[in-house]
């Protein structure tokens, strides 16, 4: 049974001339329409995730990875036109067409998102614990003791010092903020977690600890995940299957080992050869 099933995801920024999708993409070598200048952030992206599976999405900057992540996480479109079909096991219909309340409820329950930018994901004036508690409180938890215990457990699980949980989040280090985001995403026992660049901006040793921590929790909780990263190492470490994106299109897909060892697409070959 497929847990998350997405098809024909598309996001276009700017006034589209109608032929943008045909005029852009990997074959055209650009994601900006030569006719009208609209940017096709992603198009024709289809993917599915099984329960407990980790799907990796790699690609260079601007290849449309984050746009796909936002669509999968049911984030509200602030601009541009989005279309496509996202289905989650146990929920009826195309969730991209669902009303705000349904998407809001899902985002506080079944779907967790770790944002690329900390400021999008956390309220830095709140305490670290408050940020995690917000997810629980929005999901209807009304017992202070229960909320407190759950936040403490999550802090221990994600290896954030528990004695710092009542300090403002802006006083946390970058690695701690990233962990708090992961704790927040996991707070309500979601079915699937979307991680957008989970290690960007962290130094290598902290990256390793955050990835180890996430891999351990992911296996323990058996939560499905979509990991978006420009870093092949991250995807190699975490993902069972991998999608390679370029110019807003998926150019190659397969088991992570296969993609890494035997890349078919020319771009994937370049990408893997260029790893320092």
């Amino acid at each position: 049974m497929t847990l998350l099933d997405a098809s024909d995801l598309r996001r276009v920024y700017g006034d589209s001339c109608g032929d943008c999708v045909e005029l852009t993409g990997d074959a055209a070598g650009t994601n900006q329409c030569p006719e009208c200048g609209a940017v096709v952030a992603c198009a024709d992206v289809s993917l599915d995730v099984e329960p407990g599976e980790v799907l990796g999405i790699v690609g260079e900057s601007g290849s449309g990875k984050s746009s796909v992540a936002e669509l999968l996480a049911l984030e509200r479109a602030t601009d541009g036109q989005a279309s496509g079909d996202v289905r989650l096991d146990g929920h009826d219909g195309n969730l991209l067409d669902a009303d705000y309340e349904t998407r809001h409820r899902l985002r506080n329950g079944a779907v967790g998102l770790v944002h690329q930018h900390v400021r999008d994901g956390l309220n830095l004036e709140f305490t670290g614990g408050g940020n995690v508690a917000e997810k629980l409180l929005a999901a209807g938890w009304r017992n202070f003791g229960d909320v407190r215990d759950r936040v403490r457990d999550l802090f221990e699980e994600t290896e954030v010092p528990v004695e710092r949980m009542d300090d403002p989040t802006e006083t946390y280090s970058g690695g701690m903020q990233r962990r708090v985001q992961i704790a927040r995403a996991l707070a309500t026992d979601p079915d699937v977690v979307i991680l957008d660049e989970p290690t960007t901006g962290l130094d290598v040793s902290v990256q390793a600890r955050v990835l180890d921590m996430f891999r351990r929790i992911q296996r323990e909780e058996d939560v499905a995940a979509v990991v978006v990263s420009h870093d092949l190492g991250v995807v190699r470490l975490l993902a069972d299957r991998t999608l390679v994106m370029r110019h807003g299109r998926v150019v190659e897909t397969g088991l992570t080992d296969r993609v890494m060892e035997d890349p078919h697409h020319e771009y994937t070959q370049t990408l893997i050869n260029s790893v320092i």
């Binding site: 705000y100 305490t127 408050g130 508690a133 409180l137 929005a138 202070f144 407190r148 009542d166």
Partner: peptide, 18 residues
């Protein structure tokens, strides 16, 4: 409009913490 009062609840949570 969306009866989304999570932020106020965090305010109460932090009040009790403090």
């Amino acid at each position: 409009a969306h009866a989304n009062y999570g932020k106020m609840w965090v305010h109460l949570y932090e009040n009790v913490v403090e």
